[in-house]
Design a protein around this nucleic acid. Structure first.
Lengths: 340, 340
DNA sequence: CTTTGTCAGGAAACCGCTATACTATAATTT
DNA sequence: AAATTATAGTATAGCGGTTTCCTGACAAAG
């Protein structure tokens, strides 16, 4: 049925070995023979059987992207898809294939990282932070399986991860606001316990303090990230005697609420009050005016993750270390523009 | 190194064949032997080498999800990820693995559907409409490769596709508005040439007409889907002598613009004016008031696609046909609520 | 003129599992 | 009791490449 390496060998008058060597770029085959074999390959339109190749080479040339893939995941985790695109685009450059896996106990009881590793269905794994737990970490570490975790695991482990430096993000926010002449900065966050949130606040506070602009403890708010609640909180904040001249929103949804409240209170942004937000979700473009944001290039994080694992695979003795990437401040119209 | 089927056979005192048969649920092995072999499998924690299995079985148990995966794809195509989740979740139930592929000429020059098929790296393919072109269609048809396209291809082909019935969506919109007592309905769409857009309008117009409420041709607008432009158009529309009492927005971004203009004009929704929109993008929740929408369950479309291809694979003689799924009207606060 | 070395290519084992064909024993049937 | 038919399991030939080891031809060196 399908054409095989033997057909090519026969047609080119050489052995299977020779064809294989040509296919794999061996240098022990003369240019003439190589050309002849390649010509036959072209003519017969031969494409090696991928299953046979990965079997013989004992490598799948495949990377698993482990994540949660529930219904409306795009709404719950707006960054996931962009990360995935980055991972895929980087890995496909090196001829790796990427397959999706969801090991959440409820939806996919049979799956486990252990199984993926033992079955040899992948050469490495990229784990989205939302899919990481002690079990997964355990499996990866005990098999010392090539991996990259996207997002700081948050617990002690020998895992290799990459994440954005959220504290630095907080610092960038503070520096920008100071540069723009704001001095009384408030912070509205979602959950206090959230690691990302606390890091952002930490960077913000430290930097403000270092610049002699200590944040008022009453200007640090935590709310549900729902629009009405945020609006209420914003109103409270603005009518207090310690009303800020700038608000740092820990996430986009909070920024939407703040933005709405500003127009409800008829406050002029960025003159009466400024605000900025972290992250860029699909609906950020809907906020009016366009907000200044401390953005995370999540696509690039995907690229980095892909690249890291590829390097590790190419050179197994390579010691890969966890690291953080830099957030980027993108000037919008909700903080004064210093260049103008 | 890794433990193989021979190790299991030896430990259980049977032949490799027997182990293989136990593994594959043959009924020709006695319950006792089966139990003994399974016990050994447990004890040795044996997991069959996936590469060897797919090689021997001449099947990859893998489905390719073909799509575009550029940077910020999540913004350009908010539905993609949910579709993918549906596809994955359905297929993994049947032990298929799904791998991502992007064959766009610019980013992945080497890839082609032809290659995927000939290399046998997948047993079937699910093509997202945005990744479909004549070349892809050609490859699939000439190899009569198991496939499902998500979205009507729009050109003549023997492809099997599934899509939402957008005309029916238009009909649902019309029926809802009529039920709610609106009679002068306007439509704001993005590109006139867009197939989806035109189908929605068609369903809307026909249904209005059938109910004796012919739409005014001047109330059919096409704009760029950017907020300021939509706001301008809305203002124009509302100040004309044929001002509507309800506006149907062809997409979410247009709804955002319409919504903003309504509050700018201090019009009370849904009493002075109603509007509804098609689709539900991640930022739909940000629109205030919560809009009535004609939704497409894209996750379910993914499920359907996965299920369809699985059935085809399980029973190759099965003749699968293209079909459409039903949109769902979800009542929001931008049209009068008939139940209250 | 032998010895050694290099280069191009071939033979064959092997990767780990599946599946067909076959055998040996037990259970029916005639 | 002999013949037929199930039943339970085994032997083995692949699946389609890769890779190690080997051979033969020719060139360079001694």
């Amino acid at each position: 049925m399908a054409i095989t390496i033997s057909d090519v060998a026969k047609a080119a008058g050489v052995s299977k070995s020779t064809v294989s060597k040509v296919l794999n770029g061996w240098t022990t085959i003369s240019p003439e023979t190589t050309a002849r074999v390649n010509k036959v390959i072209q003519e017969l339109n031969f494409i090696p059987n991928a299953r046979a190749v990965s079997f013989a080479k004992r490598a799948s040339k495949n990377i698993v992207f482990l994540t949660s893939l529930g219904k409306e995941e795009a709404y719950k985790n707006p960054h996931m898809f962009d990360i995935m695109c980055g991972v895929h685009n980087e890995l496909s450059k090196y001829n790796y294939t990427v397959t999706l896996v969801d090991t959440s106990k409820d939806t996919h009881p049979g799956e486990s990282v252990e199984k993926i590793i033992s079955a040899g269905s992948a050469d490495g794994i990229i784990v989205h932070g939302s899919a990481l737990n002690e079990g997964v970490a355990q499996d990866i570490v005990t098999h010392s399986f090539p991996h990259v975790v996207i997002g700081n695991p948050g617990f002690e482990s020998q895992l290799c991860w990459i994440d954005t430096n959220n504290m630095l993000g907080g610092q960038f926010a503070a520096e920008h606001l100071i540069d723009c002449g704001y001095s009384n900065v408030a912070f509205i966050g979602g959950k206090k316990s959230d690691f990302i949130s606390s890091q952002r606040l930490k960077g913000l506070r430290q930097t403000m303090l270092r610049n002699g602009k200590k944040m008022n403890i009453d200007n640090i708010y935590y709310t549900d990230s729902t629009i009405p609640v945020v609006m209420k909180a914003t109103e409270e904040l603005m009518s207090s005697d310690h009303a800020p001249d700038a608000i740092v929103c820990e996430n986009n949804l909070i920024a939407v609420g703040v933005s709405k409240e500003m127009s409800r209170l008829s406050l002029v942004v960025p003159d009466d009050i400024a605000f900025l937000t972290f992250d860029r979700y699909p609906y950020t473009g809907v906020i009016d005016p366009v907000p200044t944001i401390v953005d995370i290039d999540v696509y690039d994080m995907g690229i980095q993750a892909g690249n890291t694992i590829q390097r590790k695979l190419e050179n197994p003795s390579l010691l890969v270390q966890s690291y953080t990437t830099l957030p980027i401040l993108i000037q919008g119209n909700t903080t004064r523009n210093m260049s103008s």
